[in-house]
Amino acid sequence: MEHAKQVELIHRVLEHLRTGTTHMVEEESRLPVAPYLQPERYEAERRLFRKLPLLVGHASQLAEPGDYLTHDATGTPLLLCRTASGELTCFLNVCRHRGTRLVREEQGRHKQAFVCPYHGWTYDSSGRLRGVPDEVGFPSRPSETVGLVRVPMVERLGLLWVTLEPGGPDVDSFLGPVLGELAGFGLERHVAHQIHRFEKRLNWKIAIEIFLEAYHLKYAHRESIYPIFFNNVGLVDRLPPHIRCIFPKRTIQELAGAPEQGWELRKHANVLFQLFPNVLLLIQPDHVSISTVHPLGPDRTEYRTFWLLPQRPETEKAARYWQKNMDILVGAVMEDMTMGESIQAGLSSGANEFMRLARFEQGLRYFRDELDAYLAQ
């Protein structure tokens, strides 16, 4: 993010603090409850996911030839790897013999060949079938004609994006203005660290919407992160189809009257990019956390997070420092997920036909408007 944009956003926050206000739209609104419950809506959203660029990892997870990563949250088994020539590739993680899952491990390094655990068909990192036991039984000689099925994958700013079906937008046009803002954070120079994954009993949209407002901080996070942030103060801006949220820390008040050339937004606010449809990319003072939300059912969601650090922790002190930061985030997320599961149960009760959104909960409205528009195409 360019410095001029950071200064502009900080000025907006400081003005809200000066006047005791927050960023709001003109009118309150309502969201119907039915889309959080309907199986047919869930199926439509899953189909939409298959046509949009989906974030599946970071290039540092495949740093050297033979490094690989499996990913199943999209509903399609994927195998990401770096070939012997250094190319980043993605395949369906499926043996071409009888459909067995080829690689069971979540991640590995320096793999020279992938061997099917069922009959031993062997593939190299470029997806070519290199060995078929007793191939005399296959007059068609599959080793000469068969390979793993490729899935289109591109790297942008170190982030790896796949598209499962043709017909959707390309990554560059889809990310649009967000690419320019993210470029200044040097994501491609970071290294991925850990993966934290869990499932919760809530609709995936709730798991996104929880993070698009600061109205709940004083109550849901009273003992955890609320002492660091202001309750219900923030900026929520559309970068269609994405959203950028700025949630200021109390330290941002120190910038009032200080020279603008020293202002740095990430030191005094959480900068959250909600990348449509299911990514929450959080810029923090010295690292980045990236969470993806995947629907598993109308009321089941997988939430996974990995962290991007400026360098791998090589000392025990560094490991403790980063672990403390990760524990703070995970703790706050778990508080949010508890509220999210409560929301899902409440919506399922039939008590409400719609949810009421305040003028300062516009992030939820923006997100749902984009989702509804894509589903209508």
Rank of each mutant, 00 (worst) to 15 (best):
H3M: 01
H3D: 03
E8N: 13
R12V: 00
T21G: 02
T21H: 09
S29E: 08
Y36P: 02
L37Y: 10
P39Y: 08
Y42V: 08
E43D: 12
R47D: 09
R47Q: 14
L48T: 06
F49R: 08
R50H: 09
R50G: 03
K51P: 08
L54M: 14
G66A: 07
G66K: 04
D67Q: 04
H71A: 06
T74H: 03
L80N: 05
L80F: 08
C81G: 09
R82K: 13
N93Y: 05
N93A: 11
R104M: 11
E106R: 12
Q107W: 12
G108Y: 11
R109V: 04
K111V: 12
T122Q: 14
S125P: 14
G127L: 09
P139M: 09
P139D: 11
S143Q: 13
T145A: 14
T145N: 12
T145W: 03
R150E: 15
V151K: 10
V151R: 02
V151A: 08
M153Y: 07
G158V: 03
L160Y: 01
W161R: 10
W161Q: 11
T163C: 14
E165W: 00
P166I: 02
G167H: 10
G168C: 10
S173L: 07
F174Y: 14
L175N: 00
L175S: 03
G176I: 02
E181P: 02
A192Y: 06
H196K: 02
N203T: 01
K205Y: 04
I206V: 14
I208H: 09
E209F: 00
I210A: 12
L212V: 05
A214M: 09
H216E: 02
L217N: 13
R222M: 03
E223V: 07
Y226R: 05
F229W: 04
F230Q: 06
F230R: 03
V233N: 01
L235E: 10
D237G: 00
I243W: 02
F247C: 01
L255W: 06
L255D: 04
G257K: 04
G257C: 05
P259M: 01
G262H: 15
V271M: 05
L275M: 06
F276R: 05
F276V: 05
P277D: 09
P277E: 12
L280H: 12
L281C: 03
L282R: 13
Q284S: 14
V288L: 05
V288Q: 01
S291R: 15
V293F: 07
P298A: 07
P298F: 11
D299V: 07
T301K: 02
W307S: 05
L308V: 00
P310D: 06
P313R: 03
T315F: 03
K317D: 15
K317C: 08
A318R: 14
W322H: 06
Q323K: 15
M326A: 15
I328T: 11
G346V: 11
G346E: 08
A358F: 03
R359W: 00
L364S: 12
F367P: 02
D369S: 14
D369W: 08
D372S: 11
L375K: 01
